[in-house]
């Protein structure tokens, strides 16, 4: 059963998140383990609650949802399967290397402002690339979606690094 099945939805990158969350609340209430006394039914309810929680986390986040839709199309990007081993273009890897080294220097100077400026650019790039991936997924163009989401993964790592730096400075 897929995350979409739990909500009786067809797999799609396009979702009404507000409606999904309302539906999740309703379903979560119905399958709350405290509502049943029978131990077996209780266990099933607990399992269903856990599945619903996993599903909502993935589906409400546009990035994770796109990765998941790609997975349903046969490419699990964070795995060792052959289909996930796409070669990233050399100029892209060079660009990422350069950006990461630059961020490292900014971190060494403990300059949060510069890190934020870099993150803003990365964010824009990620959104743009995610839009391209979503478009490819709508057209069932798996190779394009795979490479685009590969890029999204790199942009996301960069943004996580900035977040970690911010937390480090705040603590």
């Amino acid at each position: 059963m897929t995350h979409f099945d739990l909500f009786s939805l067809a797999p799609s990158v396009d979702l009404d998140v507000a409606a999904l969350e309302a539906q999740h609340r309703k379903l979560a209430m119905e399958s709350h383990p405290d509502r049943v006394a029978d131990p077996h039914a209780r266990r099933l309810a607990a399992e269903r609650s856990a599945a619903l929680n996993d599903a909502i986390k993935v589906l409400k986040d546009p990035v994770r949802r796109a990765f998941y839709v790609l997975e349903l199309k046969g490419v699990k990007l964070d795995s060792d399967q052959a289909a996930a081993k796409v070669k990233m273009p050399m100029d892209f890897l060079e660009e990422i290397m350069e950006q990461r080294e630059q961020l490292e220097a900014v971190k060494a100077r403990r300059n949060l402002e510069e890190a934020h400026a870099m993150a803003a650019k990365m964010h824009a790039l990620r959104d743009e690339t995610l839009a391209r991936a979503r478009d490819a997924l709508r057209k069932d163009d798996v190779p394009t979606a795979t490479t685009a989401l590969g890029r999204v993964r790199y942009y996301t790592r960069f943004l996580e690094e900035v977040d970690a730096f911010e937390e480090e400075l705040a603590s």
Partner: peptide, 13 residues
């Protein structure tokens, strides 16, 4: 040698 794996978003030179 510059390589990367989209599985994890790592880049290695």
């Amino acid at each position: 040698g510059l390589v990367g794996a989209p599985a994890c978003g790592d880049v290695m030179r």
